[in-house]
Every structure is written in structure tokens, then in C-alpha cells.
């Protein structure tokens, strides 16, 4: 069965140790986390994680089933095949002399990256987008000399009214279990 990057939206109770429980589950069951992001939501006490993991279809279903078993997990939705918006934010610092600054900024413009800090020999850029887009920017800026880079994990939300909002009950599986 083919392995692909799968995306999970996981609502959790905002309690100490929840991240630990989720991370421990992935480690213990030998599931591979590619990216994990966690942050607050508009609802007090509820955090939302976006987890990207490399998995085949069966494994993806078992990831969902195992996450649902965690007591502090409120809801798990896999959105791998759903039309959705996925974003990563990155900050990059490049070592650029004043005479090449315009050139760098022009390239950044193509990627819709913003300049967020300028100093005599350095430029800090902020870019939001898919991983592909960020990788593209990195490759064109590399010749300038990237001195620092940081990026968040992926955050994702499905498009349209059929969303990824927290459903108030973890749906009981019925047919919703790992299929052969």
C-alpha cells in the first residue's frame, strides 16, 4: 500500500501533558510525524492540532482510531483527500549587502514574501504558504547566504461549509474504521 503524507485535524482539551500524550502515541506505535502544530482556538479550553504524517491508508485509519482513544482528544478528522487550505509560516534571514538588497527583495516579491526587518547587512523575510512555495523561496535565496531560518508546522482547514470545526462528539465508528 502506498505511503503518502496524510493530514489530521485534532481537537484536544487544553490540559497539561496533552502534547506529550499525542507525541508519545506516534512514537510508541511507530507512526511517523512529518509536522505537528498546536495552538489555541476561539473556544476556551480547546486547542487544535494539525498533524501531518507519512502513512499508508490502513495506517492512516489506525492513526485516527488510536488518537480517538486518548481521553483528552475531543475529535479527530482526517482531511488528506478533502479540498483544504494548508499553510506554513517561515521566517528567513539572509546575509545581503546593500547593493544586492533590491535584487533579493524582488525575488521575495515573486513569492509574496514580506520584508519584516532590515539591517545594514541582513534582511528578514516572512513567507506564508505551502511547503512547496517555501522550498522555492529557499532555493532562490540560498545563493545570497541564508543565515537563519525557522518555520511553523503545517496548519490546515478544509474549504467550504463542510468544515473541520470541532464536532461535539467523536463520532462512533460504524463503518468508520480501518478498512482492508
Amino acid at each position: 500500500m502506498a505511503t503518502a503524507l496524510c493530514t489530521f485535524v485534532v481537537h484536544v482539551e487544553d490540559r497539561p501533558g496533552v502534547l506529550d500524550r499525542v507525541a508519545s502515541l506516534f512514537r510508541r506505535r511507530a507512526f511517523n510525524i512529518d509536522s505537528l502544530n498546536v495552538g489555541r482556538t476561539h473556544e476556551p479550553g480547546v486547542s487544535r492540532m494539525t498533524i501531518v504524517a507519512a502513512a499508508d491508508r490502513d495506517t492512516a485509519l489506525r492513526i485516527t482510531a488510536n488518537l480517538r482513544k486518548l481521553v483528552n482528544v475531543l475529535d479527530v478528522q482526517e482531511i488528506t483527500d478533502k479540498p483544504s487550505v494548508t499553510r506554513t509560516l517561515a521566517l528567513l534571514k539572509i546575509d545581503v549587502a546593500p547593493e544586492r538588497r533590491a535584487e533579493a527583495m524582488q525575488l521575495a516579491e515573486v513569492f509574496r514574501a514580506r520584508v519584516v526587518d532590515v539591517s545594514p547587512s541582513a534582511l528578514m523575510l516572512e513567507i506564508t504558504g505551502t511547503q512547496d512555495k517555501i522550498d522555492g523561496l529557499v532555493s532562490v535565496l540560498r545563493p545570497f547566504g541564508i543565515t537563519e531560518m525557522v518555520q511553523t508546522g503545517v496548519v490546515a482547514m478544509t474549504r467550504g461549509a463542510d468544515g473541520t470545526a470541532l464536532r461535539d462528539a467523536n463520532p462512533t465508528p460504524g463503518g468508520d474504521v480501518p478498512a482492508a
Binding site: 485509519l61 489506525r62 482510531a65 468508520d176 480501518p178
Partner: peptide, 8 residues
């Protein structure tokens, strides 16, 4: 009982 056991 445990959906995580299916096809494990």
C-alpha cells in the same frame, strides 16, 4: 471493541 485493533 477497539477500532484501533481492526486491520492492525
Amino acid at each position: 471493541l477497539d477500532p484501533a485493533e481492526i486491520n492492525k
